[in-house]
């Protein structure tokens, strides 16, 4: 117990140092507003990627529809803020909560039936769901004009700043870390390792898979809600199935089952994309996609198991497991419900 709190404190200290570092950079005019935007975007992407990390990296459920939930969160939060909020902080919080809950709830509803599918079939079913959501967004204005449809939703107030996004980023990390190292997390990991064995150990796999899916998609919804408050404009093409692959490759390149890997890769990925624009300049901007693709292929060829390959940074390490006490019920007792 004690070690757990020490770690949480360590993370908060690390976050504080990071925050001061960024603020100093901004103060010294090293970080231009453009790069601040990139930084905010990278934090938002990280929150979404952490959600997929929970679904795929820890629970092993292959989802290719993550961007759909990101979009559901963004559209829900955006619509609430636009119609009712007009920039007030209270409505901002309500919108964020609503966006998160909407994504989690839809994930729960869609997850219950489709999580029975295995690996690639699950991937395709979620991909299909992602495309359905995109079509829905394209035609949403026919039901609710405020959603804007295929031309996008504009006129959103940008309430979220770096501080707010950073706090949610921190909350997401702490939440996921504590979840993974709890009894729930062990259940998730056991499902990833072997679903049948987990079932045999008395873990209700359907319940835990759905839980992981809903929570992970909730994080995507949170990321989307923040996105809707950071940028004044939402467009369905920001949430199409190709964006789901972005989340997937972040989680895989970071190393499945590594929170630090996901965080580092997500931030690095966002900066790589924009950095390439900067490095290549006007003249070679066409090569951006080519070089990005090459970096992707080369990285995965060099590190097929991901950059962190299931390991964690020092302050993210799991608490050392105590040897199981000789109680009658053993360590899986808490999972029986």
């Amino acid at each position: 117990m004690k070690q757990k709190y020490t770690q949480t404190i360590l993370i908060i200290v690390a976050a504080a140092i990071f925050y001061v570092f960024i603020k100093t950079l901004i103060f010294l005019n090293v970080l231009s507003p453009y790069w601040q935007l990139v930084l905010d975007q990278s934090l938002i992407v990280t929150i979404g990627a952490l959600g997929l990390s929970l679904i795929y990296g820890f629970t092993g459920q292959f989802s290719l529809g993550h961007a759909a939930f990101y979009g559901i969160g963004a559209y829900t939060a955006g619509a609430i803020s636009k119609t009712l909020g007009h920039g007030s902080l209270l409505w901002f919080i309500i919108a964020i909560v609503a966006g998160t809950l909407a994504a989690a709830l839809i994930a729960l509803l869609i997850g219950l039936p489709i999580l029975r599918l295995r690996s690639d079939y699950l991937g395709i079913a979620t991909l299909g769901f992602g495309i359905i959501v995109k079509v829905g967004m394209d035609n949403a204005n026919k039901v609710l004009p405020v959603l804007g449809g295929a031309t996008g939703m504009s006129g959103l107030t940008t309430v979220a700043n770096f501080e707010i996004i950073f706090i949610f980023f921190l909350i997401a990390i702490l939440l996921l870390k504590n979840l993974i190292y709890s009894k729930y997390g062990r259940a998730f990991i056991s499902i990833r390792e072997d679903e049948i064995a987990a079932d045999a150990m008395g873990i209700d796999t359907t319940r835990y898979k759905t839980m992981a899916f809903a929570l992970g998609c909730g994080l995507a919804g949170l990321a989307g809600s923040l996105y809707a408050h950071r940028y004044p404009f939402l467009h369905p093409s920001s949430f199409e199935f190709l964006k789901s692959f972005d989340f997937l490759l972040i989680v895989v390149l970071g190393g499945l089952g590594s929170i630090s890997g996901t965080i580092v890769t997500a931030v690095g990925w966002a900066f790589l994309l924009e950095g390439l624009r900067f490095v290549l300049g006007e003249q070679f901007i066409d090569f951006r996609g080519v070089i990005y693709a090459l970096i992707l292929v080369i990285t995965i060829l060099m590190r097929p198991q991901g950059l962190f390959s299931g390991k964690e940074l020092l302050f993210m390490k799991p608490p050392r497991l105590k040897t199981p006490t000789n109680r009658e019920e053993g360590s899986h007792a808490g999972l029986r419900n």
Binding site: V252, D286, G289, Y292, A293, L296, I300, Q305
Partner: peptide, 19 residues
């Protein structure tokens, strides 16, 4: 390697061909 690595590589190749 794990199956997912080849999948990511396939995505990379796909992007490469497109761009």
């Amino acid at each position: 390697a794990p199956k997912i690595a080849a999948l990511i590589s396939a995505l990379g190749v796909s992007l490469f061909l497109e761009y």
